[in-house]
């Protein structure tokens, strides 16, 4: 029995180590590669042996990568702010008030979050061109709302539903307006949920690729994912892998840190978005 138990324990720890390596190794290797330049890049060693910052310099000097980061930040923050504002008011209506057509509305919102992005691509292209915002950040902000808004409304509604009913009744009896109830009573209580939802929406907007690829033309207007995908070097045949890895590390580290800080909240937000459906 004890031998069997020992074997079981060793197998369990082997499994844990396998999971950890599987999860972490690719990113670890990207960081290693980002510090190697020239021929060092082709050594394929799994130990850190070089700390060369040349890739981190050249990724900013060879293309407008700083501008691309700024674009991504502006787009993601604006999209999150709009989604949270519209989402909070809508979630109050959908989560706290019983009215006809509520179920259908929720169903529509859930269906929109299942949309394949490509299904709105040509219509969105036409809309963005008609509004004169092709190849500009407002165009990307508009397009990104289709990703973040339904999701935000849905998750905030599930959170809103769980707050006790007595909260608003007293306020209504005292003659408070619905807007006061939302802004003075629910807003403070919903902060944790809004941080979670906002973070998930931020990640979705930060990672968005198809719209950003299709609705921008110049390198100046690109967001980070498109800039990384289209990064090219001096030669058309050899990709500048060192620069690509450096760019990848730069845009991933902040997200990974945020996710690790808020990991409990994120898990609860993810499950609210899916499991409780």
């Amino acid at each position: 029995m004890s031998v069997q138990r020992l074997v079981g324990k060793v197998a369990f720890w082997a499994l844990l180590i396998a999971i950890a390596i599987f999860a972490v190794f690719p990113f670890y290797y990207a960081i290693l590669s980002s510090f190697r330049s020239g021929s060092e890049l082709f050594t394929a060693s799994i130990l850190p042996d070089h700390f060369d910052f040349r890739n981190y310099v050249s990724v900013f000097t060879e293309q407008p990568f700083g501008r691309n980061i700024l674009n991504s930040v502006v787009v993601a923050f604006t999209v999150v702010a709009i989604s949270l504002f519209l989402g909070l008011t809508a979630a109050y209506a959908l989560g706290r008030v019983q009215f006809t057509g509520r179920g259908l509305l929720l169903l529509t919102i859930l269906s929109v979050s299942m949309f394949p992005q490509v299904a709105v691509l040509s219509g969105m292209f036409e809309l963005i061109r008609t509004l004169g915002i092709y190849n500009s950040l407002p165009g990307l902000i508009l397009a990104n709302l289709i990703l973040t808004l339904p999701f935000t409304v849905w998750v905030l509604t599930t959170f809103m539903r769980e707050l006790p009913k007595e909260l608003e009744e007293a306020a209504y009896v005292d003659g408070a307006s619905p807007w006061t109830v939302v802004s003075k009573i629910f807003m403070p209580l919903m902060w944790p949920a809004m941080v979670t939802t906002g973070l998930l929406a931020f990640i979705a907007a930060w990672n968005e690729f198809l719209f950003a690829l299709t609705f921008t033309l110049s390198a100046q207007q690109r967001t980070v994912p498109v800039a990384i995908a289209l990064l090219s070097g001096a030669s058309q045949f050899e990709l500048p892998w060192g620069n690509i890895m450096a760019a990848s590390v730069i845009v991933t580290v902040p997200v990974v840190i945020l996710v690790l800080i808020f990991q409990r909240r994120i898990v609860s937000g993810l499950t609210a978005g899916a499991v409780k459906g």
């Binding site: 844990l16 999971i19 950890a20 999860a23 972490v24 690719p26 990113f27 290797y29 990207a30 590669s33 990640i203 930060w206 990672n207 690729f209 980070v224 994912p225 498109v226 990384i228 995908a229 892998w241 690509i244 890895m245 990848s248 845009v251 991933t252 997200v255 990974v256 945020l258 996710v259 690790l260 990991q263 994120i266």
Partner: peptide, 22 residues
Amino acid sequence: LRAAILIPWAIPTIVSAKMWGW
């Protein structure tokens, strides 16, 4: 370990495509 498995999820798809491409 739970934090570690969140890393692949947090990495942008384009970045993971490039990382694996390499």
